[in-house]
Design a binder for these strands. Sequence first.
DNA 1: AATGAATGAGGGTTCATTCAT
DNA 2: CATGAATGAACCCTCATTCAT
Lengths: 212, 212, 212, 212
Amino acid sequence: MVVSPPKTAPGRRTASKAERRLQLIKATIRSIAKRGLSETTMAAVAGEARLSQGIINLHFQSKERLLIETLRYVADEYRATWEKALQGAGNSNAERLEALVYADFSKPVCDRNKLSVWFAFWGESKSRPTYRKICAERDREYDEMLTDLCAGLIAEGPYPGVDPALVATGLASMSEGLWLDLLVDPDSMSPEKAMRVYQVYLAGMFPKHFAY
Amino acid sequence: MVVSPPKTAPGRRTASKAERRLQLIKATIRSIAKRGLSETTMAAVAGEARLSQGIINLHFQSKERLLIETLRYVADEYRATWEKALQGAGNSNAERLEALVYADFSKPVCDRNKLSVWFAFWGESKSRPTYRKICAERDREYDEMLTDLCAGLIAEGPYPGVDPALVATGLASMSEGLWLDLLVDPDSMSPEKAMRVYQVYLAGMFPKHFAY
Amino acid sequence: MVVSPPKTAPGRRTASKAERRLQLIKATIRSIAKRGLSETTMAAVAGEARLSQGIINLHFQSKERLLIETLRYVADEYRATWEKALQGAGNSNAERLEALVYADFSKPVCDRNKLSVWFAFWGESKSRPTYRKICAERDREYDEMLTDLCAGLIAEGPYPGVDPALVATGLASMSEGLWLDLLVDPDSMSPEKAMRVYQVYLAGMFPKHFAY
Amino acid sequence: MVVSPPKTAPGRRTASKAERRLQLIKATIRSIAKRGLSETTMAAVAGEARLSQGIINLHFQSKERLLIETLRYVADEYRATWEKALQGAGNSNAERLEALVYADFSKPVCDRNKLSVWFAFWGESKSRPTYRKICAERDREYDEMLTDLCAGLIAEGPYPGVDPALVATGLASMSEGLWLDLLVDPDSMSPEKAMRVYQVYLAGMFPKHFAY
DNA sequence: AATGAATGAGGGTTCATTCAT
DNA sequence: CATGAATGAACCCTCATTCAT
């Protein structure tokens, strides 16, 4: 008789480390969205995850680390989103840029919970080098990718004197500003409207590639 | 009943109520920039203003009120800045729009202390209706004014099919995104660069009025 | 977010919730007796119980609740004392009344710590409906029981025209007044003397049942 | 021409010292009744008197002194009341005792504001020797006077074996207990009922002099 | 691995007292 | 004499962290 060993640690009564960490990070995101960063306590997060008080220190050692991991999670997810969007897009620069727009205002990215997290950390970033570094890194990566894309686009068309870096920064900034509107004034801004605003910019800059 | 008389009667200055309030609001701005909102304590603000612990409750009743007044102060100042910029500008729509760009990236507005305050409150705004209301109001006012200006510009030139509201929202959003870059990544963003980014958008949208 | 980890992990004892609560209530009684209600601070009570600052909020949520629970504890204990006295007494009404007198001036009841608590709460009761309610309830219960007893006694003897309710109220009031003397002027009042005073009243009212 | 000097400092814009002090003491009594001793702050008293913050320290140096003066005021007033009652009474001991009963439950004495003050101070008296001394002094004076009166009554009648001191203490205690009922349970106790309770005691003890 | 009672530093706030006006 | 802005110690309470279970 051969006892086939369980593939996935079946008798385990407790979640794996990674699962618990993810569970807690998601609880943190919900808590920041619901209560704000300043009222997000360890107890609040643990309660949100329906786990006990001490659990966070067990898995993250400190609140500070939990918050940093949460920010990193959101940043990684954002990068993964646009990377996937690029992979799924056509080969032309225009199609790729279009795909990025869709990604930036897709459900998972501009979900108001996630936006809350971004703005919460941006709000603290001036006085927190660690937060700032993570945010700046994300910015830089996105900006580089976008600059390349814009450079390609400019090379294709009759857009004399247009600096791809400035256009890219402008586009990235506009996204952030539109996210703010989604967060602060959801009644007068929606992902769809945000995309139209974005399209207007693209059509103005690259009339050969985009139309209103 | 515990009697704790002040041991010393140190440099007692007397200022008008309004002066004290302003002094404390400015101290709050500095503290938010230096420490972040979450570590801006009553003691920190009072210390920043070189006044005693109890002073804030005396003038603002609670920390919450102080913060709201601080946000309102920054919002009012912002409005005053662009109103003044419009008054000082020429009569043409293009000149007026140009003046707004300068205002948005002038020293007093995109001072990193002030930006810290904006992002600190935006970060909490989802869970704080009071903050959100003040921010949304500012947004709305600015947007309306800018929409009118864009509408004027569009009427003047051959810009068929351009929706002034969308352009205005795009411009306002871009400003906010550029402020974020100034806050988060001051090494690779400056007010001057931000203005250039902005100009690129204007030149792209309104080639008859603006050039790169 | 200020991180302040406990530097030491001192004598951590673990007691059941009920034990801790009782421990804290007893510490509160001692503190009220020693310092008065107005100087009974959370720190004082915690110190009296040799526990840490935060412990009270952990078990009682607020100071107010601790005080109410303390009053309730003393009130419950008082009721238990006279109920037990009645159970242990003989069957005759006179014997039962006699037992009540002993109970009212027994060590546990007219212990000056407990008396301090009663008077502390009575002193605040006009402005605190919650306190007043608890005190009034105790009064009512005692009065009813005593009225029944007096009615029985009156029925037995030649006491024409005596209203049992008035006698009962008089007896209960006298107890309270004697407690006050024990509290305020312990040099000229003692439980023994108080009992003699009480006996004089009984002998005057019910000469067939009691003698001087 | 003779300028007749004003008899009563007429041009004075401010009240005399004594008037101010009395005004503040009365405000203190109202505040203790309304808010309780523990929430009677300097600001509350000053506000009750419609005067400014610093006024109390000006006239009483400290809160402690104000409270002591307030207690003394109430105690003096109580003594004055029964002294006046005795003066106005007939010459017989029975009439004098009767007058005391009326005094004890007259409007000015068993006004709930005043009672609040008494119980507030009694509640703190164990831990405050100064309060206790004033209260004990009042007790002693009253007790002595009442003992004399009872001794006279006993001498007049066939009351063998009755100790006047014990009767006096009993009567005084009963008053205090009845005041407590008036404070704590005003719905089921009234000055009139209190007097009837008191009368029952008198009639029981001194049947020759008092009837039910 | 997980719990939750316990800790204690630090938070916002109150308030007796002082003093320039 | 009177005011009320200012002070700062001490209050109640919160919460990140620890650790016996």
